[in-house]
Design a protein around this nucleic acid. Structure first.
Length: 587
RNA sequence: GCACCCGUAGCUCAGCUGGAUAGAGUGUCGCCCUCCGAAGGCGAAGGUCGCAGGUUCGAAUCCUGCCGGGUGCGCCA
């Protein structure tokens, strides 16, 4: 199953090949000038340059061949040599019907037989998620949904930050407070209690305090370093405490991501590859890729072609502790062993780009990455209205939990204002408000390009009109509503028919889904899907506004239009699912 | 200092592997509910695509320089 543009491309390629040109020239795309044509092919211009010939003459030859194909209603040459193409209405209707019958709704199979690991690195043990985690969660989730839909085998890994200095900071802060002396008693031989001496709420308070203490007092920082090294060295009491931190945090984090509809295949973290580190370092030494530098063990990753300074990756610090990069390397070893992926995608803040470049180079230099391509799909910073990284009015970071509660409350308010859902059971009302709130949040984030910074605007996250998540949900809800009503009146649905301009544009958009899914995968860019979904909803709304489906006298026409509605609902639901957005049955 | 990213309508952003008249949303102004859900549809106004060069038949898109903003640059993650 392929898109209509892909089908036309195949036809045009054959025409170019038959005229003795490179078939790549036959790429057909949706027209930039919807007023002139549905599709365009610019290959004659490129061919003319290569062959030093007149582009219009080449276009003439190609067009003559295309005209023999009955799929085209129009083949026209315009301007310097654009070939403008229209497809017949019957062809549109026929393909639309075929896609509707396809279980995969025409999704490309770009990932068939391939495995990807998606790393959501970012969230930390003992810290609540804040708005900064929204991006990696939402973008990463959309990518895992998309890659799966395109046929990839995907393993998503939450990849918690659970093994660095912050753990030592927590431990030494707890030591100072004397909260759990048992874990610091070196004479104690265990077993340690099953119940955690601290709750998630405790950790949320302890961590910032610990962090501040280390910042203010070098002696405290030294203590934290020592605790980190002892933890990594296997000190039983510290390990036991760490287990509690992890367990307590996981419950909270799982609930939080769950409320966003985000789930992971793997709950790994830095600590889970801890056992691989010592043998990996031995192996790297044996391979001769490491060296001593200023008391640390490093891998040089600079290349002659570098235009910038490329510091070495530090494997072991001069005090013996390992770093982020070391665990990242060991994680690659682990993934090659466990999943043997073709691709590892790191959905992590763009600011860590240099770090990943170091890690990737080190992995490739040491041959640790198997067949996997390592790729950092970085995303831009979320800034406040002042252009600086977002802070609440009080100057702190806004918790994700609070943000979700806020947009949900806004959605609820809006429902009440509109007098909607007034007669729904309270539970449905609440669930609907939540769905609308989360859709607002996710769509606002995903419709921005992944890589650029963007302004976190509370107002924007409480808007329900225009290019927003709720607009898309609304379109889907209206379709469901009309289908219910039609069924109640005893109307059937039939294969779509295309006659009016609105039907034509809607069908064209429906047939472009595989293109959007393919482009979104290639660019690792969910905003392509967001854009597609919005345009689809828009085309439907126009169609809906123009044609009163249920009131006409022509039963066959009504059934065909209901078929188009049904098809649109399927496609819209599918794309929204790829964005991680749920559709209520009514709202 | 070096490197990377960004600069597009009043505002928020798409478009960037070169193509025709640069698009959305929002805001402003106007129109459309006796009819399937108006969280909607239609229309108007709104642009030196940061600036200056270059490559090209053709540049928002590629190259160079400059200006402005952001980010990163060995023992944090």
């Amino acid at each position: 199953m392929s898109s209509l543009a892909a089908e036309l491309t195949a036809i045009a390629r054959a025409a170019f090949a038959a005229e003795g040109f490179a078939e790549e020239l036959g790429t057909v795309q949706a027209s930039d000038r919807a007023d002139l044509a549905q599709f365009q092919c610019n290959g004659a211009l490129a061919a003319a340059r290569q062959a030093k010939a007149n582009p219009r003459a080449i276009a003439d030859k190609i067009a003559a061949r295309l005209k023999t194909n009955p799929i085209f209603a129009k083949v026209e040459i315009a301007g310097p040599g654009f070939i403008n193409l229209d497809v017949t209405d019957d062809a549109l209707a026929e393909r639309t019907g075929a896609v509707a019958r396809d279980e995969r709704l025409g999704a490309p199979e770009t990932g068939k037989g391939k495995t990807a690991v998606i790393d959501f690195g970012g969230a930390n043990v003992a810290k609540p998620m804040h708005v900064g985690h929204l991006r990696s969660s939402v973008i990463g989730d959309s990518l895992q949904r998309l890659f799966r839909a395109n046929g990839w085998t995907v393993f998503s890994d939450v990849h918690l930050g659970d093994w660095g200095l912050q753990m030592g900071q927590l431990i030494s802060e707890i030591a100072h407070r004397g909260i759990a002396p048992l874990y610091f008693d070196e004479a104690f031989t265990g077993p340690y209690p099953d119940e955690s001496p601290v709750t998630m709420d405790d950790l949320e308070e302890i961590y910032p305090a610990a962090s501040a203490a280390c910042k203010a007092d070098p002696a405290r920082l030294e203590e934290a370093r020592k605790a980190t090294a002892d933890l990594q060295g296997g000190r039983p009491g510290y390990r036991a405490l760490w287990e509690h931190f992890f367990a307590v945090s996981r419950v909270g984090l799982e609930r939080e991501w769950g409320s966003l509809g985000i789930h992971f295949d793997l709950w790994k973290g830095e600590a889970s590859v801890e056992k691989l580190i010592v043998p990996m370092i031995a192996q790297l030494k044996a391979k001769g890729v490491t060296e001593e530098s200023e008391g640390a063990l490093v891998i040089q990753v600079a290349r002659n072609s570098d235009k910038k300074e490329m510091p070495p990756l530090i494997l072991v610090k001069s005090d013996g502790a390992v770093l982020y990069g070391t665990t990242d390397l060991a994680t690659i070893v682990d993934r090659v062993q466990e999943q043997d992926p073709d691709l590892v995608l790191y959905v992590v803040d763009q600011r860590q780009h240099l770090h990943f470049e170091q890690v990737f180079r080190a992995a490739e230099k040491a041959g640790l990455n198997g067949k996997a391509v390592l790729e950092h799909a970085g995303f831009g910073t979320m800034n406040g209205p002042d252009g600086k990284p977002f802070k609440t009015r009080a100057g702190g970071v806004m918790k994700l939990y609070d943000l979700i509660a806020m947009v949900t409350a806004e959605a609820e308010k809006r429902l009440a204002e509109a007098g909607l859902a007034a007669d729904y059971p309270p539970q449905e009302r609440e669930a609907t408000a939540r769905m609308v709130g989360i859709a607002t949040l996710k769509f606002a984030d995903l419709s921005n390009h992944r890589q650029t910074d963007y302004i976190f605007d509370l107002e924007r996250f409480s808007k329900f009109e225009g290019k927003t998540g709720p607009y898309l949900q609304y379109a889907a809800v209206r379709i469901q509503s009309i289908l219910r009503k039609a069924e109640g009146e005893g109307h059937k649905t039939a294969a779509p028919v295309v006659r009016s301009p609105e039907e034509r544009k809607l069908a064209l958009q429906l047939l472009a889904l595989p293109d959007a899914m393919g482009a979104a995968e290639t660019k690792r860019a969910p905003n392509v899907l967001a854009d597609y979904a919005f345009t689809l909803a828009q085309e439907f709304s126009r169609f809906y506004a123009e044609h009163h489906i249920l009131s006409g006298a022509d039963e066959a026409l009504r059934e065909a239009r209901l078929g188009l509605c049904e098809m649109t609902l399927k496609m819209l639901t599918k794309v929204l699912d790829l964005l991680g957005i749920e559709v209520p049955t009514r709202m």
